[in-house]
Computed example of a mutant assay.
Amino acid sequence: MASSSLISMKTLLVLLLASSLMGTFASNFYQNFELTFGDGRAKIQNNGELLTLSLDKYSGSGFKSYNEYLFGKIDMDLKLVPGNSAGTVTAYYLSSLGPTWDEIDFEFLGNISGQPYILHTNIFTQGKGNREQQFYLWFDPTKAFHTYSVLWNPLQIVFSVDGIPIRTFKNQESIGIPFPKNQPMRIYSSLWNADDWATRGGLVKTNWSDAPFTASYRNFIANACVVSSGTSSCASNSPSSLSNAWLTQDFDSSNRRWLRWVQKYFMIYNYCTDLKRFPQGLPPECSRA
């Protein structure tokens, strides 16, 4: 799929990202997350360094962050359900509350053994979604941990996998498209049964003889603005400082090359090209995507 030069670029990027994170420490799951459902199926282990979610035929499980954030660079390492994961969905997302909520979604759609996971992404603004893009990954996400990141600042939202951008959503309020910028969001994750739609449109059902299904999490890192009692922790900090540089981070030429690579070789659905779904015209943000 990728040329040797692209593979070399990927290796270099991973090394640069690893060096840039030196001295940055992952937060403790006990300190940052609340287990929300599952009756013991969600577990924090290894002195707070590891979190696991499990699903069986009786229940899934989930967690959410104690903090609310208004802009941030959020990283989480995930290792997904191995083997026959058909019918299962591992969701990892940011969301606000209320009827006009904002939301930034990673959803991992399981599949039968030997078939690739589908990474489903979506963005909601003021309660409106329908902005799905889907991808295959260039590795097996069940064999090892990989880092899934969201950069959310006043300029854009960027989804990344192992530091490689796969999707952007620009702030285009200038042409009347709402952008998430006023509603604080919490981080959520859940592992649940969605065999009515997740695998081949619901044709493949969950095989409960393979349960329990388990997904694992580690190395949560949030460089973000925490909102408490209506006040942001970034209010008195300069965006130009090293710790808050992500607040004004925009796309450069290297990011654009990686984005084109991913979207050329690994994108399998893009709402901005689905004329059958939008016969009256594509959503306005698609004209500048």
Rank of each mutant, 00 (worst) to 15 (best):
V150F: 03
Y271H: 14
Y117N: 08
H120D: 09
D274S: 13
Q126N: 15
L78H: 09
F29Y: 09
V161N: 04
R218D: 02
E285F: 06
G110W: 00
L13V: 07
W152K: 04
M76H: 07
E34R: 15
D252H: 07
C225D: 07
F145M: 07
D162P: 09
T199V: 01
M76G: 10
E103L: 05
D140N: 14
Q45V: 02
A144D: 14
W246Q: 12
R167E: 05
F145A: 07
V226T: 04
D140K: 06
K264M: 13
F213C: 08
L51Q: 00
S241Q: 06
N28L: 08
L51S: 00
Q133A: 13
D210C: 05
W208R: 08
E285T: 03
D162I: 05
N47L: 06
F266N: 15
D195A: 05
I112D: 11
M185Y: 01
N255H: 10
G110E: 09
C234V: 01
Q134L: 10
Y269T: 03
K205V: 00
I74M: 13
N67V: 00
T24Y: 07
S3F: 00
M9E: 14
L191F: 11
A222W: 01
Q249W: 09
E68N: 10
E103M: 01
L78G: 08
L151T: 02
N84S: 13
N130L: 12
L282C: 07
